[in-house]
Design a protein around this nucleic acid. Structure first.
Lengths: 288, 288
DNA sequence: AGGCCCGATACCCCACGGGTATCGTGTCCG
DNA sequence: CGGACACGATACCCGTGGGGTATCGGGCCT
């Protein structure tokens, strides 16, 4: 029963190389006390003193230097496993679909982090501007998608990464622009930009569910166009409040509408390990 | 960041060999659900499907069989570390002192379990009958001791393994033998066997602290002699109630005296890893 | 069609590995 | 010679991960 684990050996190797608990802890991105404890546990486990503690650091004992050689060999071998297995699996591709406004996060954060984990995987990013990227999931065009609520969730699994209030995008000279919060009633009679017919029925429903006249404004193709419309002709638009906006525009949160959730989505069928891994990476790095 | 750990590889190897989650779980002394989860996490970590799940078991995929080879090599190498390090430390000895009534537990349970962990260590057991084995700690004769409260605890560290009420050992034809509990007042005027002068002052103090006349009975050398004395001439003795007794004797718990704690003790100075390991083994197998 | 066998899922709970605060001690300098 | 510092050890707290039990889903085989 009970065997040494690689984590303990990594800790041990760090201390052996630094000859100093504090510095080793820094290199391991942790603090000194749990490192001291881990080394002591390893010593107890092996029944052997590994370090001579001195007032200005530590030194390896004879048993310690033997363990250092063994641990190094084991850790190097363990490090190779990942690529060996990946080679055996052959060349694989992961297609990621994303909404335009999340594309930056996907391209700058998620994909690099994912590539660090799976260097052998060919990741392609497919950006859709206002259309629902989950349509690509159902069509088999992409394996995993980043999108925002609301969207058509039939036949797909999702995980919420972040939840952001929906706000009204206004020019900063708009009478409502100084309010810290608005309700739908405040917006009666306002002209809105709206999305092209059929591009995203669920978001359209969310839109019209607020009592706005969906036909009242111009039809625009992209988020950028919507923002420009607000800026130049006094229409309004809805957007999650964390979107960066050009100077002269503000986003005021809507208190009586559900928030917009940034989600990662995958086909309800056939969750491959790569997709699960991507979801894990997305969840662990959810800080924008 | 993040590497495979040996535990996951051990699980994987077991499933690969059994080709069956349930059987593998049995071999690993665990249940099937956490094993399934661990394998799935390993698959996610590596981004690869390791097993083909079939209705009557599982089969390795191509990537899986590569991992099986790698994992086997890694695990064999890890298994050798312990003995390599132990060899480097040279021949060492651990001297264990014990009270006679714990000797069976020490010899049958603790020492074998400890030898399984540290095959290179020469374990010697030193049995002391009624004398305090912690005296051996202070004298440097033993490295670790098993004893019972009360004992002289100056200058040593201890850990309680088990706490058992102290009882009065009586012949079963004694008028008090049917009671489920006794207090010291019930025992006035009774004749007692007692310990030789000077062998164990602390236990003697515990004894006389109950109001008994320490000089009232015969002086006996061993626990067995005490029991015999109770059996043959109607004296009485104190003993932890979990002691096995010959037919014709019963032990009735004393409600107004502190319990007897079975403890493992070590010198307050110089806690070597071997001693700590012994204490760990003693604690983990504390079931009598 | 129904019962089974086997892996997957859902949920709970404790141990362990992380953190912060503090201590003990040897060393070096003023 | 004494005090401040540096470094490892200890004490304590807390969240997570890896165990458990109960249950589901879904192919085979009678």
């Amino acid at each position: 029963m009970s065997g040494v684990d690689l984590r303990a050996l990594r800790y041990f190797a760090a201390v052996a190389e630094e000859r100093h608990f504090g510095r080793a802890a820094g290199r391991l991105h942790m603090t000194q006390p749990p490192l001291s404890r881990a080394i002591r546990q390893l010593e107890d486990e092996l029944g052997v003193v590994l370090f001579e503690r001195t007032p200005k650091g530590v030194a390896l004992t004879a048993a310690g230097s033997v363990l250092y050689d063994e641990a190094g060999a084991l850790l190097r071998r363990a490090g190779r496993i990942r690529s060996r297995v990946a080679d055996a699996a052959g060349a694989v591709t992961l297609a990621v679909g994303t909404l335009a406004d999340a594309a930056e996060h996907v391209g700058d954060r998620l994909v690099p982090a994912f590539r660090a984990r799976h260097p052998q995987v060919n990741v392609t990013v497919h950006e859709s501007d206002l259309g629902d990227p989950t349509a690509g999931l159902r069509a088999g065009l992409v394996d995993v998608a980043m999108t925002r609520t609301p969207f058509d969730s039939t036949g797909i699994g999702t995980r919420v990464l972040r939840s952001v209030p929906v706000g009204v995008v206004l020019r900063d000279d708009d009478p409502l622009a100084r309010r810290t919060s608005l309700s739908s009633a405040d917006l009666a009679g306002r002209r809105w930009v709206r999305l092209p017919e059929g591009t995203d029925p669920v978001w359209t429903a969310y839109w019209t569910g607020g009592g706005h006249d969906a036909a009242a404004g111009p039809v625009l193709r992209t988020v950028q166009e919507c923002v420009q419309a607000v800026l130049w002709n006094g229409t309004s638009a809805l957007a999650p409040v964390d979107q960066p906006l050009p100077a002269g525009l503000v986003a005021v949160p809507l208190s009586d509408r559900p928030p917009s959730d940034l989600v990662v989505a995958w086909p309800g069928t056939a969750r491959s390990p790569l997709v699960r891994s991507f979801v894990q990476v997305a969840e662990s790095g959810r800080a924008p």
